[in-house]
Simulated scan of single mutants.
Amino acid sequence: MPRPHLSFLALHLACLSLFLTPAALASAALPSHRLDNGVVEARVSEVAGGRLLSFALKGQPNFLLIDEAAGDPDAPPDATSGYIRYQGHEVWIGPQREWWVHQDVNPARAAAKATWPPDPWLSLAKYALVHKKQDEIVLDSPASPVSGIGLRKRYALVAGKPGSLRLDAEATNHSGKLAGRDIWFNTRVPAHTMAYVPVAAREDVRIEPAGALHYTLGGGLLSLDLPMPGDAPRKGKLFAQPSHGWLAAFRDGQALVIQFTHQPRAAIHPAQGQVELYQDADARAADKGMLELEVHAPYVELAPGEAMRASELWTILPYHGPATRDAHLEFLRRHAAQLGILIP
């Protein structure tokens, strides 16, 4: 019996797939909008929670950790949705220990005071496109029956700062009752990224679980230590009260500086830190794990219909020096005036 003939298109796609790497296939998985000013590029998706998928200097690798093929972006969220590891950058609503206690769509999670997964309607749903311009995109989430919050996200390239991207989040209380909440920015990068936070003293740092992570603190700057060959894997979270409103991360020829409004300790929910670094790293598997660069806005009580707002300013610069703490700190000091950051 003769074999059926493949159409030209099917044959072309079959052949093409032989030459696409898994990374290339993943990068094409989610529909997205591109922001590009010739210096930096960013990609934003309406699906998967209105997520920021990539940010990098033009022609350079994505600074973010992303897996666009992690789940089915067309699957609507529901009260039993689990977590899908798309990664990239997303916005949560804190505090974490109250994620599921103010809802009745999943009574089991409410009774257990579940701290996982994050709100599916904010992190997995398709957002509505409010408007899109060459240098800006605005997206709206559905109103969540879990947190009672609806999110508006704005991503915009910054006029006069060609290496910068501004991220704005507005959270509105749709629950019909008073709601204590905070805005929580969460940025995922590969595990071998080196991170720095201005911190005045060890009393401004705690680690959970105790002893899980290692850091260096000197000259008013904290750096999260990476595990070296022979070290045990590291998995835990560092909570910090920063002395100034920025953090920095270095990896593979690029330096990312994230600026935010500095808050006094009393403004941040006591279960959180204004800056949190979650590290999952193993020197034996450098391509696995991740680092989360997290920033909390103030914890506030929102009346029905009331909104709160927070923002981050991202700036990415080329970095061609060695991957050492001393070299990174010297680079930050040299560029502090350009960036508009204060370094102790």
Results as ranks from 00 to 15, higher is better:
residue 5 H to M: 11
residue 8 F to Y: 00
residue 14 A to E: 12
residue 16 L to K: 11
residue 18 L to C: 12
residue 19 F to P: 03
residue 23 A to R: 14
residue 35 L to E: 02
residue 36 D to W: 13
residue 40 V to R: 03
residue 41 E to F: 01
residue 46 E to N: 03
residue 47 V to W: 01
residue 48 A to L: 04
residue 50 G to F: 08
residue 52 L to S: 06
residue 54 S to I: 03
residue 56 A to L: 03
residue 59 G to L: 05
residue 59 G to F: 04
residue 60 Q to Y: 05
residue 64 L to K: 00
residue 69 A to Q: 09
residue 71 G to L: 10
residue 71 G to D: 15
residue 76 P to C: 10
residue 79 A to E: 12
residue 81 S to P: 09
residue 87 Q to W: 15
residue 96 Q to Y: 08
residue 96 Q to N: 06
residue 101 V to I: 09
residue 103 Q to R: 06
residue 104 D to V: 14
residue 104 D to K: 15
residue 104 D to P: 07
residue 106 N to I: 12
residue 108 A to G: 05
residue 109 R to P: 08
residue 109 R to S: 10
residue 114 A to W: 08
residue 119 D to E: 11
residue 121 W to L: 12
residue 126 K to F: 06
residue 129 L to W: 12
residue 134 Q to K: 14
residue 134 Q to E: 15
residue 134 Q to G: 13
residue 136 E to W: 07
residue 141 S to I: 14
residue 141 S to C: 03
residue 155 Y to K: 12
residue 167 L to D: 00
residue 170 E to P: 03
residue 176 G to D: 14
residue 182 D to S: 14
residue 184 W to K: 02
residue 188 R to G: 13
residue 189 V to I: 06
residue 189 V to A: 13
residue 195 A to D: 07
residue 196 Y to G: 09
residue 196 Y to H: 07
residue 197 V to I: 13
residue 203 E to W: 00
residue 203 E to P: 01
residue 204 D to F: 03
residue 207 I to K: 08
residue 209 P to M: 07
residue 211 G to S: 07
residue 214 H to F: 00
residue 215 Y to C: 02
residue 219 G to M: 00
residue 220 G to S: 04
residue 221 L to C: 06
residue 223 S to L: 00
residue 228 M to G: 00
residue 229 P to R: 03
residue 232 A to V: 07
residue 233 P to N: 09
residue 239 F to G: 04
residue 245 G to R: 03
residue 246 W to Q: 00
residue 250 F to N: 02
residue 250 F to H: 08
residue 253 G to P: 03
residue 254 Q to E: 04
residue 255 A to T: 05
residue 260 F to K: 00
residue 268 I to Q: 04
residue 271 A to R: 01
residue 276 E to Y: 01
residue 278 Y to Q: 01
residue 278 Y to H: 12
residue 283 A to M: 01
residue 289 G to Y: 02
residue 290 M to P: 00
residue 291 L to D: 07
residue 302 L to S: 05
residue 304 P to N: 02
residue 308 M to N: 02
residue 309 R to D: 02
residue 311 S to I: 05
residue 311 S to L: 10
residue 311 S to H: 13
residue 311 S to W: 13
residue 313 L to E: 06
residue 316 I to P: 05
residue 317 L to T: 05
residue 318 P to G: 06
residue 324 T to C: 06
residue 331 F to T: 08
residue 333 R to G: 14
residue 335 H to R: 10
residue 335 H to N: 06
residue 336 A to F: 04
residue 338 Q to E: 15
residue 340 G to N: 08
residue 343 I to F: 11
